[in-house]
Amino acid sequence: MIEFKDFVFYVLSLVLISSGLSVITSRNPVTAALSLVLAFFNAAGIWLLLQAEFLAIVLVLVYVGAVMVLFLFVVMMLDINLDKLREGFWDYLPMAGFIGLLMMVEMVMVLKTKPFNLAPITESISNTSNTEMIGNTLYSNYVLPFELASVVLLIAIVSAIALTLRDRKDSKKTNPADQVAVKRQDRVRIVRMKSEEKYIKSKAKKRT
């Protein structure tokens, strides 16, 4: 008799694998992105089964909520010519397949040798939730890498702005300081000139 937990696991994994396959096989990039979202949901479900609720929530919030939505926007906005992307697929297939197969055989040969002898995960270490546990470790043992991660994010912001922000040539922005500091000479040009006698004379002639 199969347990309920096992049953849920098999359902989640089946959907995960099939959605993963459809990510790489579907012709439409939007379908592929949506399949990836489905795959993330199922992976989050498997993590929930392992009692890693924090990871599950983060996966849904960060990947499904933010990254994939962004990705979908990009895919929809860019007009990607799929036929051009697929050009030469069959030409490269033998070589790529050969290398892929070679790598797979090597990996299997290595990984088959022996399972990692990690210490078994003790069931329910304490009553605290694992969100709290992760928080505690993150801010004590791992505080230095954690802070450095924030610096990495800061660099990402700085360099994104440094690389993309530029003054547009057609922008109509004004500088208030310049506006206040403006003088009469900048706006009005006073020209000293003689009154045009010829003109006045000709007008006078016409009247007479």
């Binding site: 791992y142 890498p145 450095l148 991660a149 990495v152 660099i155 360099s159 440094a162 690389l163």
Partner: peptide, 20 residues
Amino acid sequence: LLVYMGLELLSLCLYSLTAL
């Protein structure tokens, strides 16, 4: 872990400096 953090910190700066 710290090796990797330092490496990313350095590499990200170098990538963006190259494109400066």
